[in-house]
Design a protein around this nucleic acid. Sequence first.
DNA 1: TGTACATCAGTGAACGCGCGTTCACTGATGTAC
DNA 2: TGTACATCAGTGAACGCGCGTTCACTGATGTAC
Lengths: 218, 218
Amino acid sequence: MSLRDERKQQSRQALLDAALTLSTSGRSFSTISLREVAREAGLVPTAFYRHFQDMDELGADLVDQVSLSLHHLIKSLREGYGLKAPSKTRMSIERFFAAVNDSPLHWEFLIGERWGGSNIVRGAIEREIHFFIDDLSQDMHKLPDFEHVKDHEDLRIMAEILINLAFSWAMTWLNLPEEQVLRDTQQEQLISRTTRQAQLLFKGISNWQSPIKTVNPE
Amino acid sequence: MSLRDERKQQSRQALLDAALTLSTSGRSFSTISLREVAREAGLVPTAFYRHFQDMDELGADLVDQVSLSLHHLIKSLREGYGLKAPSKTRMSIERFFAAVNDSPLHWEFLIGERWGGSNIVRGAIEREIHFFIDDLSQDMHKLPDFEHVKDHEDLRIMAEILINLAFSWAMTWLNLPEEQVLRDTQQEQLISRTTRQAQLLFKGISNWQSPIKTVNPE
DNA sequence: TGTACATCAGTGAACGCGCGTTCACTGATGTAC
DNA sequence: TGTACATCAGTGAACGCGCGTTCACTGATGTAC
């Protein structure tokens, strides 16, 4: 890559970073302005157009970048499945919160904009969540813990439940107090609570019998 | 109430209605302007200040109004508990979607602004959700189906799971296609799916044993 | 390697626009006598 | 009941501001010879 291309790439990234920062500092993506983003990135407003046609295009690209955190999480969870651990559920939950800690702004963005004001961003996030559910339910299909579940569709439902819950957990996690000691104890409590919620779900599915599909739903 | 007071009340309501409509038409509360709201309500911008100090104050009042739908739902569910029905879970789910149908904008607003851009609105919604969880978990405590659950805290966790799921269900419900026949079949499918998700949860809690609380969580 | 030209990321002035907010006002409604 | 005054929801002009977008430009980097 030429020197010019490299610098262009840097500016582009600065714009994306600026948009992410501004979107997650108590505001939302659809309330920030093109000029604010450029200013935060250290550029003149007109330079914005060298990289994106408008804020919608930047938003779509931002979702792509931020979604990498979802893929990293899937990867981390996969590495965990193979390990021996006293509680696999708890370990997966810990890996989840570690992912949230790694890139808190990414999670805040995904959760906050999932039902947010920009149609483009909302659609892009919903698509990524769909992929995540696919991946997760396929992983579960391979795990011995779930091999008694015959209907693949049941695992999808389970994965859907899990990701919806996970988003609430992440938001609670991110809103924990700053102060060290308080934070540590509340983090531990939250991990316990969420582990319990997940175990409750798994207990459910382990006793689950797929209902016979009737021809006439009435 | 005097004639003047009545008319003032009408204008005030027109402003609240306008804000709700604008907030749920593909945009969000924090992206709509005071002038837009006044215009939509058929008032001059400056008249806004006769009713609210600023958009934040209107937002807080709007959350109060919209939250009535949550209270109505709790009431409707309570009436259902007593009835004889082939599937109580399915009936509760049906009552839930009926509530969403009754005031779709209210639900769209609550869900969209729960993690939205306005701090004031976000806080007010989180408070209402808290009340809802309290009510729901207390109701569950009284139901025979859950009397074997000893730890009240487990019911709270359950109620938390349920409301988070319910919000996703409502959003899916609201995004179903407009076309009548397609809509009818997909509504039926969604009711079946969500009933199944809920039953899966209840199976879980019916097999649930509260973990012994260790002194040292390590 | 050196030169002459092309490319193009970033600049800065300018535009028209909708915004939130102020202010002095109007005129219908309410109140005191 | 009628009159004189007070209240106050709604009006309309005006303000300064940040916005998105256009345009002609600059000057560093890239390319062809």
